[in-house]
Structures are given as structure tokens and as C-alpha cells.
Design a protein around this nucleic acid. Structure first.
Lengths: 360, 360
DNA sequence: CTGTTAGCGCTTTCAA
DNA sequence: TTGAAAGCGCTAACAG
């Protein structure tokens, strides 16, 4: 009694989007044939195909990719991107780079903005896994990466950006934090500065500590001692950085130059210097828009954050392809041949940095 | 012969994430019971519940939300956000605002960056619909909105940001483009300027034309004619804007002031003014970071783009709730009572703007 | 070339 | 309290 069933369908589903069966009924074929037509399977009579196409168009049919991906057992065509602050141009450019690469593979990017909330980050990653994303690119906020390790161990490819994996294997794409910071600090020293202050993000952030190491190394290379009173870590936003810089500049024996570990701190330091009217020299990590327009000599460690994102995207896409290929071994075949195909070893790409000078 | 089936499962699914049935088998209960436990259904014996929980933990089980949403017929818990350029702080802040609101409802944001590509935008929207997102927030790049109209007509709630719907009904959240531009231009005129140039985005962009209207209205209010030679539309990036501004400044009778319809153009104009060394006055739409640091008097039309995003998110969430509620009428009930519940009429929220002055 | 059967992972309905 | 059956929308695998 299929007729009865059909009428039930029609009644209860009013307003719902049309399904493949609606199309099939209208074209008077089986769902299978409709499916074939809509996936451009050639093994369909042209006349039938046209009928199905017409029906689909008339109904405004859209294939349900959720159902499809469930059936195929493949991924969902989504990649998760986990960042702390999209409003920071570094992250938005990274996101753009990632999206441009994965989009070329038909993948969409789900952005999760955690806003420094570590618990939120854990939940977010868990949710992305539950959503069966095909892979995750993350810039973890803190030093605990167990949630990412868990995701990776469940078979979800994970790529870290701007931090190395800690406690598990994963691809990552890094910036030469140490070298960039050392070079920029050395540049300040080569201009005769002997008291150089440091402003940076919270110590838990990998890039922050690496850049602090680079700063310290440059001082050591010049035979200068590290003066902890000149080091201020923990500033996340320009306003905090401005206050911290003002404190350093108000010391009895203030620094004659400042090195900042990221663009948020550089901008804050710039404001503090301008406000106090000193001619403190300024250097920082991250190039940023209008850095050339500040009317101050400025040395910046520049790198391509779009490219960072693109590289992360490429690494992830390769892993996703690898997984697809790796699982394709048909049931009973000669699988003992080469086992489950040894996966690529974890890769680590380090993006180079360069110094940029902006004049007054 | 269920045993045989099980062994097949176990073999062929090696490496795949565990399913509810894997959990059920391990706990020696039916899939149904496992399902109930994992959704905290109280109608399960504590002992059984503990067994199931233990099995799930041991296996590292994660519910497959894709399968769940397919079964429930509800949405996927995703909202699509369609923008042209995430690297523009306006869009990244908008995205942040949207995400913060929808995340509170357990929804994730899928960002689609179209990069001004109109075809790409159409495909993207189609794909979001095929992915069965619960709703779409869009800042369309061009003037053609038929793809959004199609999505809306298929029952996907659509909210437009920063442009009104054209040719269909949808909620939208706008900025007071006309008023803001008129006020800023009037401010320039009140300082005695009589030749005010205009730099703006391509004419197809709604905000661009509205802001041009505001500029023109301010001129008319002051009894000044509109001089088309002082109007340059079509610049999307600062570099283009800089060239266009330079052209205006090189006219035999150059403008003494410039009004720019967005931050990209304002930044370009700033560079041109600084390069030519004139003391051209500058005003523009959009506040931006470091605008106070340019060493030039600057009048900006400011508004809260986070709040714009949050408002868009709120409007969308309300529509999504409405849809959920509206479809909840159980099969045969007293549905003739109030029909399909009249939907809210389309809403239009206009965010206010204010003028900000930055000094030299 | 077309249709039938079965099932992806989950949950609603109904029966035990 | 628990389970069996059915099916969300779609498609591989096999008929015919």
C-alpha cells in the first residue's frame, strides 16, 4: 500500500524542503534513478534524465549533504578553525588563508572563537569532533593541549598554527619566533641602546615565551644582563600594554628602547611613548596596517600571516586526503601487502620572518 | 544471526569512531538504552546507566550529531555567515558579534568569505542551504540578491547585515549610512570647505550609494552643487583609494576636503594626503584602530560593528526559534486553531552613528 | 538502463 | 525499565 504512505508524506511534510523521493515521485521514477541523475551518473536515459531534472527544478530540490555524508561514511566537508580572537588581524588573516586553501577542496571552514576561554576551547574542540569535521586547525590559547590530543587520537587530523604540538603528534606551522625576536632586539642594540624593555603576552602562550627567549638571547649576545624589571608579560590588549609600557617608562632608570612580542603590545607601547613624549625606540613582532603612519621610527618583525594560514590549510588537506586514501582498502583484499599504509610523519613548517623599518 | 553481523562490524570498522551500537554491545544493552543513558533520560536503572557510561568512556564514544540531526529532522546547529572580506576589520568584528550571540544558543558559525566574487557568493549560499544550516546572515557583495531570496523561500531564515533585502522579505540590520555621511560632510562644510571630494566603494554596493546620497544631501543643504569630477567610486582597497585620492588632489582646482565612504578609502586618502603634503581635510565612514594616531585632523562616522553583528545574530536566533516552534504542531492536533502561526513581520533595525574627531 | 534491498548512526513509537 | 521496529535522506551493491 505505497499510495497511502505517499499521501502521509505529502501531508505531514508540508513546508519541509523536498527530498529525493519527492523528486522521484514527480518524475515517476525510483529514488535511485533520481539520485543517479542528480549526481550526473551517465547510466540514465536522456529522456529520463530530463524528466528528473525538470522535477527537481520545479520542486526547488536541494540535495541534503548531511544525509549524503552520513550514508557515504565520509566526512562532512567541514574543517574547524579554533582561534582566540578574530578581531586581531593576525587571526582574521590566518582564517582567510586557511579558508582560501580548503575551499579549493570543497571544504568549508567553521570558525570557533574562544576569546581566551580555555574551557570554552575544550568544549569547542569536542563539539567539532562530535560534528565530525574532517579536520581541525587550532591556535590553542593555553599550554594544555589534551583536548587536541584527544581529537587527534580519535582520528581527526589536527594542525597547529603558531604553536608546536605538546604531548602528541601533529603537523604544525610556526613562525620563527625566536629568530625574529632576537633579530629585532639586536637591531635596537646595534643602535646603541643598552636598556631595552620587553612587553609581551601571558607567559603561558608559546609565542610569547619564544619571543622572550629571542629577546634575552640578543641581550646575552651583546653581553648585557637580563633585567627582569624591564620585562612585563601578560598584556593581551593595547590598553593593558599601554599601561605596562607607561610603568616601564616611569622607572627611575627607564629603558631607552622597547621590544614588544606582538602587535597588541606594540600598539599599546606606541601610545605610551607618544603620551609621555620620550623618544624611546620601538620594535615589535607582527607587522600591521598603518604601522608606517605613526610618525615614529619603528622596527617590526614581519611575516605573512595569510601564508601561514594557507600552509596550515595545505597540511590539513593533505592529511584529510591521506585519511580518505588510507581507509579505502576494500574488505578482504590483499591488505597484508603494505598494512594500513604508514602515515606521513608529523611535519613542522617554520615560516621565515624579516625585519621591516618604518620611518618617522 | 546477529553474532555474525557484529563480527563484520568490528572488522570492517577498525579505526572508525565508535558508534552507539559499539557502546551498547560493550554494555550489553540495546542501542536504545544506550541512547537514553547518553541523553540523560531518567527512565533507566542506575546500574544500567553506569554500565553504559563506563562503556562509552572506555570507547571514547562521541555522539554523531550529524546522524542525530538527520533523524530529528531539525537543523544542524550551524549558521552561515557570508561576507566579502574577513581581513576588513568591519567584517571580522561583525563575525565576532554574530558568533558570540549564536554560540550562546549552541549554534556554530560557518564563515564563507567570497572575496567580492558574485558567482562564488551564489554557490556559497546554495551550499549552505544544501548543508541545511539553521540560518544565514549575509552581507551581499552585489545588488543581486536572488540567491538569498531563494534560500529564504526554501524556509531558511535569512538576515541581511548592512544592506536591506531587495525583492524579498527578510530581517535586516543597517547602519544609518545616509545620516552618518550627511553629518560628516556637513561637519566639513561647517569648517568652511566648499570643494569636498568623495571617495567610495563600487556603485553596486548599497552602503556606498547611500553614503554618496548623504554626502550629496549635505552639499545640497549648503546650497552647493554636486561636482561629479570630485566623486570617485569603485575603490575597494587602500592602494586603489590612494591613487584615486591623488588624482583628485592633482586636479587644477583640487578639493580642500575629502569624504570617504569606508575605512579602506579613508586610509588610502590619508596616505595620498600625506604623500602630497597638502592640508586637505579628511572625513570618512567607519572608525578604525590607530585613527587617532595619524597626526591629521580626522572626522569619522563611528558605529559599533560588534553590536551590528550581535543584533544580526539575535534577529536570526529569534527566527530560528520561531521556525522550531512553528513546526512543532503534532500530527493530527487542533491545528485549525490558529493556523501555522503568523510569522513575525520582517524587521529592520537601524544602528545609530556618531561623529568622532581625532586631532593632529 | 532501472529498480529493489539494505543500511549510514541515531531516536521516536509502540510493545513487552 | 527495556527492547524491537521503523525511518530521517541518501546511495552502494546487486539484481533484473
Amino acid at each position: 500500500m505505497p499510495e497511502r504512505r505517499d499521501s502521509i508524506r505529502r501531508d505531514s511534510r508540508a513546508g519541509q524542503p523536498p527530498t529525493l523521493r519527492d523528486v522521484a515521485e514527480r518524475a515517476e521514477v525510483s529514488a535511485m534513478t533520481a539520485s543517479r541523475v542528480l549526481r550526473d551518473d551517465p547510466r540514465v536515459l536522456p529522456a529520463t534524465r530530463d524528466r528528473v531534472r525538470a522535477a527537481a527544478a520545479a520542486l526547488g530540490y536541494r540535495p541534503n549533504v548531511v544525509a549524503r555524508s552520513l550514508r557515504l561514511g565520509r566526512g562532512t566537508g567541514l574543517v574547524g578553525l579554533v582561534v582566540t580572537n578574530l578581531a586581531n588581524p593576525f587571526y582574521s588573516r590566518l582564517a582567510l588563508g586557511v579558508d582560501s586553501v580548503v575551499a579549493a577542496d570543497g571544504l568549508k571552514t567553521v570558525i570557533g572563537n574562544t576569546g581566551q576561554d580555555l574551557d570554552g576551547e575544550r568544549d569547542l574542540v569536542a563539539d567539532l569532533v562530535a560534528r565530525r569535521v574532517d579536520g581541525i586547525i587550532a591556535v590553542p590559547a593555553g599550554s594544555d593541549q589534551r583536548h587536541l590530543a584527544a581529537a587527534a587520537s580519535e582520528g581527526v587530523p589536527v594542525v597547529l598554527a603558531s604553536r608546536p604540538p605538546d604531548g602528541f603528534d601533529a603537523d604544525c606551522v610556526l613562525v620563527d619566533d625566536f629568530g625574529g625576536a632576537r633579530d629585532a632586539t639586536a637591531r635596537l642594540l646595534s643602535r646603541g641602546h643598552r636598556r631595552v624593555g620587553f612587553l609581551g603576552s601571558p607567559p603561558a602562550v608559546y609565542t610569547g615565551t619564544e619571543r622572550l627567549r629571542g629577546y634575552t638571547a640578543a641581550l646575552a649576545d651583546a653581553g648585557l644582563p637580563a633585567d627582569t624589571r624591564l620585562v612585563s608579560q601578560g598584556q593581551t590588549e593595547p590598553a593593558e600594554a599601554e599601561r605596562a609600557a607607561a610603568r616601564l617608562l616611569a622607572l627611575p632608570d627607564p629603558p631607552t628602547a622597547l621590544f614588544c612580542s606582538n602587535n597588541r603590545n606594540t600598539i599599546g607601547a606606541f601610545r605610551a611613548i607618544r603620551a609621555t613624549g620620550t623618544d624611546t625606540a620601538l620594535a615589535g613582532f607582527d607587522d600591521f596596517e598603518l604601522a608606517d603612519a605613526l610618525g615614529l621610527p619603528l622596527t617590526l618583525v614581519a611575516y605573512d600571516s595569510d601564508e601561514l594560514g594557507r600552509t596550515a590549510g595545505r597540511l590539513l588537506v593533505e592529511r584529510i586526503r591521506e585519511r580518505r586514501g588510507g581507509c579505502a582498502a576494500p574488505a578482504g583484499g590483499e591488505k597484508a601487502d603494505d598494512g594500513p599504509v604508514a602515515p606521513m610523519p608529523p611535519r613542522r613548517v617554520v615560516a621565515p620572518t624579516g625585519l621591516v623599518e618604518y620611518g618617522p
